[in-house]
Design a protein around this nucleic acid. Structure first.
Lengths: 141, 141
DNA sequence: ACATACCTGACTAAAATGGTCAAGTTTAGA
DNA sequence: TCTAAACTTGACCATTTTAGTCAGGTATGT
């Protein structure tokens, strides 16, 4: 099981953004330089973050992105959901309570994978952008 | 983040094996039929499980595989490790405490990913094959 | 001897990943 | 008004990983 770079970058970029957005919007170019993430790739990611109302954009010179919510209200779940980073432990459809693998019964370890998914998602639900900021306090300009 | 089928199948197959191995060795063919997993694929998986001393093999007619340890001592960690299913949340080397991304400092969210890895691995360390069996009791023949 | 079952390694199609590239539109500031 | 900074959109693609298959073996109980 591994985290994709899309999910990882999204969180890194948002933490970076949150640290600098008190006064002016933050440009992707700056985030790109500070975090070492390709600008083109960041644009893809922020497009999704915007659609999910996690950030707002300000176009034109001196433009950039700004958080659209209080850092305390932005959970990892929200970020990952926005960039399609999902936790997936089973092949079988969640909804079809009956059959996995085309069989008539639940697969032998079905409960286990459900538990695992919940275990991981709990972590994501309890962690907010604010929690991450507190770990990375820096002097504001 | 998703679980690969190798890891999933390994656990499914071992639970199946554990339920039937009290008397005779269990053939991969039987597991294949019961669990709907390709025989060829199972052979790859069991080759690794054997190398990691999780199962023993018995060749020849009426042969098969048998658990090599008490189900209570086979943790998910052991199984996943055997089939190279690993939890990976960062790109940067674990050992290089200093630099991620070739930079001189730890990446901004490094602690987060470490926490996540530990969170997931804890689940795997605390879950044994025996726990899974208790959830799936069946009549023995 | 022969069928059953393990053993091994090479091979591969399809999907996912991790991006790049190109061509815009919007807007602040000179 | 012109220009450069910055967002916007969508197509494209190389590489890697996944999830197997295939083709041969070897060992052994009956």
């Amino acid at each position: 099981m591994k985290l994709t770079s899309k999910g990882r970058y999204a969180v890194m970029a948002l933490v970076d953004l949150a640290r600098f957005d008190n006064i002016n919007p933050v440009s992707l170019r700056d985030i790109s330089l500070r975090q070492g993430i390709s600008l083109d790739y960041l644009e893809q990611i922020f497009s999704k973050l915007k659609k999910n109302e996690i950030v707002k954009s300000i176009r034109g010179t001196q433009g950039g992105y700004v958080l659209n919510k209080n850092p305390n209200d932005i959970k990892l779940t929200n970020i990952f959901h926005a960039v399609d980073e999902k936790v997936k432990t089973v092949q079988c459809k969640k909804e079809s309570k009956k059959g996995c693998n085309g069989k008539s019964t639940k697969c032998i370890t079905h409960n286990l994978w459900d538990e695992l998914e919940i275990h991981i998602n709990t972590f994501f639900e309890n962690k907010s952008l604010k929690d991450l900021l507190n770990n990375n306090k820096e002097k504001r300009v």
